[in-house]
Design a protein around this nucleic acid. Sequence first.
DNA 1: GCAAAATGACTGGATAGTCAGTCAGTAACG
DNA 2: CGTTACTGACTGACTATCCAGTCATTTTGC
Lengths: 212, 212
Amino acid sequence: MPKIAESARAARRDQIIAAGLACFASSGYHATTMADVAEQAGVSKGTPYLYFDSKQALFLAMHERWDCDAGQRANAAIASLPDRERESPRAVLRAVAAAVAAHVLAESQTCRVLMEARALAAYEPVIAAAVRAADARTHEQLQGLYAAGVAAGEWPAGTDPVLAARLFSAGMYGLMAQWHLAPGSFSWPDAADALAATPVPAPGSLPMAGSR
Amino acid sequence: MPKIAESARAARRDQIIAAGLACFASSGYHATTMADVAEQAGVSKGTPYLYFDSKQALFLAMHERWDCDAGQRANAAIASLPDRERESPRAVLRAVAAAVAAHVLAESQTCRVLMEARALAAYEPVIAAAVRAADARTHEQLQGLYAAGVAAGEWPAGTDPVLAARLFSAGMYGLMAQWHLAPGSFSWPDAADALAATPVPAPGSLPMAGSR
DNA sequence: GCAAAATGACTGGATAGTCAGTCAGTAACG
DNA sequence: CGTTACTGACTGACTATCCAGTCATTTTGC
């Protein structure tokens, strides 16, 4: 019944996603027209709608793809660690940070889309849901790492894994934003590694600063 | 010769900026029309163009306004510290972090606009320039604080003030992004304070993690 | 040969920015 | 002081353009 092989259909879908990636990354979501995407993909204006219900649906598909991609990279980085280091949550976290840094350097297009998704999330509930879901998964893994690290004595006792994970992901995201604003203005690997290695004080562990 | 007093003109300008803030914060830059802004301000569709050349110019004016506001808040927070603490760079940094946290909680509208400006900066060179300029100023102050803190022994010797400042601002920005994505999901004051109190390892101070 | 895939002209709606005209406030003049 | 001439702040209908999504038609794969 398939007019074209399943694989051909998937390939065309990928082709459109790739075109969307190129367009959205170089011009942003709003400045990109579906006609741009179609032209970039070398198909007619109607074809993308045979694979995606709407511009937003195409964007969401791309976001999902990036998410899978980044997760695979991180997992590959963990898998490639020597056994000895894979036992150390801190070493794992640093490997993940390094993998993300490498990913940002190698795949700036997909990162642009990730950043844009976050921006769009502020006003588009559907995109917000997708971003939140991706965030929740990342967060869970990070919390697990920090919790294990605290248990192993690699971070100070009393460190709050939830807060630590939040600060780590916030820092990575902020670094990405800075990188896109001023590419090359700092060393990604150094910054990412510093973030992964930084101990996070438990809240209240230091006396509250003065008035305010 | 002006038909209206200079003060009246400034008031009208402010009125339009305020309307823009409300509209851009609630709907975002692209979804907000100049007609929306005009209606919100209670003026006709042509009036905003008597005060701003374009939609983008209006947005830039708002961004500048926020920037001044935030800087003033931070300076006020520093000024209100007891003398003893004002001598301590770390205490100053924590006060600034607390001020920013308070600002985010009290003025979520302006923060939304700041976030959006960063997102727009990816594809709008004029906005990018404005954001970069604001960033550079912030960064300079933070670096000064960290440098003074290292000199005073409040951060570990060898801490790189530039990297530390970058990680702090990245963290604050990332926290803002998380807050907008899931408001109320964490304690801003705690997170901001942890960020300000965190020591940042010098790059290379720890052995590089595994392969890659 | 037929059904699905692809096409591309088309539509309906939206919007940034313009401009000819209105009107309120000011000043100059008698 | 009252009238008139003038100025520029303000208005809102208008235009030129753009674009997401549709659909009748053609092409293609099986």
